[in-house]
Write a protein that binds this DNA or RNA. Structure first.
Lengths: 131, 131
DNA sequence: TATTGACTTGGAGTTAACTCCAAGGAGTAT
DNA sequence: ATACTCCTTGGAGTTAACTCCAAGTCAATA
C-alpha cells in the first residue's frame, strides 16, 4: 500500500505519516526496491494504532516510548502494560472533563433556547455562565 | 480576589490568566485603585467558564468569539446559542473518539495482564495492536 | 526613607505536533 | 529520450496556547 493510499484511508497527510515514522511513533515502514514506502499489514496496524491514540490526546512522546519498548522485545511486556495504563489514565481524565463540559454546554444551550423561544431574557448579567 | 488566589482556585498561572484577558477569552477584569486585578464574582464566573471549556478542547478562538458576542448585547443571543452548539459538536466528537480509544486500551491492557499472569505470550508480532 | 514583595505591561520565547519546501530519484506514458 | 507524476530526504517554518522576561509601579513593612 502506497503512502497516498494509507493517507486516504486514515485521513492523514504524507508529511504526517513520514513525521510519525521519523520520530518513531511507528516503526520503520517496509520499502520497495526504489526506496518508496510500501505499507504492509503490520505497518498499517501501527498507523491505525497511532491515529487512534493521537485522536484521544495520547502524547506522541508516549507512543514513541511504546514503540521503543516493543522493539526491545519480550522483556518489556510489563513496562508496556504500565505505559498503556498510564495512557489510559490520561484518556480517562480527559473523558471525565469532556463529559462535565458537555453537561454544562447542554444546560447553557437549553437556557438560550428557552430565551429565544419565549423572547424573554430571564437571566441577568453573566448568568448564562452559571452551573 | 487577587490574581494569585484565582490561580490557586483554578490551578492556573498568573501568566495564563493575564493572557486570557489580553486576547479576550475573558472580559476585562475589575481593578484596584493601584491598577492591580481584583476579580469579582462575575470575573470569576468567566474564568471558571474558560477553564471548563478549555479543559474540553474548545479552542481559545471560540471563547474569544463568545465574549465578543456577549459584549455586543442581547442582539447576539441567537449567534451565541449557535456558537455554543458548535462548541458542543466539537466536544461530542472528541468524546466519541476518547471513548473508542478507552475501549481499545482496556482490551490491550487486559491482554497484557493475561500474558503477564500466565507467562505466555499468546500473540504474535504486532498482534497487540489489533482490535 | 529604604527595602521588600506582589503586582503591572509589552513583547519575546517555548513547546507539541505537525506542515511546508527545495532538490533530487524512480517508474511510466509518449 | 523526454516529460510527468509520485515519491524521497533533511531541514526550516507554522500554529495554538501558553510561558517567560525586563523594566517599572504600588503598598506595606523595617
Amino acid at each position: 500500500m502506497t503512502i497516498k493510499e494509507v493517507c486516504e484511508k486514515y485521513n492523514l497527510t504524507p508529511d504526517t505519516l513520514r513525521y510519525y515514522e521519523r520520530v518513531g511513533v511507528i516503526p520503520e515502514v517496509h520499502r520497495t526496491k526504489g526506496g518508496n514506502r510500501d505499507y504492509n499489514e503490520e505497518d498499517i496496524s501501527w498507523v491505525e494504532n497511532a491515529v487512534c491514540m493521537r485522536s484521544a490526546g495520547v502524547p506522541v512522546e508516549m507512543l514513541i516510548e511504546y514503540v521503543k519498548l516493543y522493539r526491545e522485545g519480550d522483556g518489556t511486556i510489563q513496562a508496556r502494560r504500565d505505559l498503556l495504563a498510564e495512557a489510559r489514565a490520561v484518556v480517562q481524565e480527559n473523558l471525565d472533563k469532556y463529559q462535565a463540559t458537555m453537561d454544562k454546554l447542554n444546560y447553557k444551550i437549553s437556557r438560550y433556547d428557552e430565551a429565544i423561544k419565549t423572547g424573554v431574557l430571564s437571566w441577568g448579567d453573566c448568568e448564562d455562565l452559571k452551573k
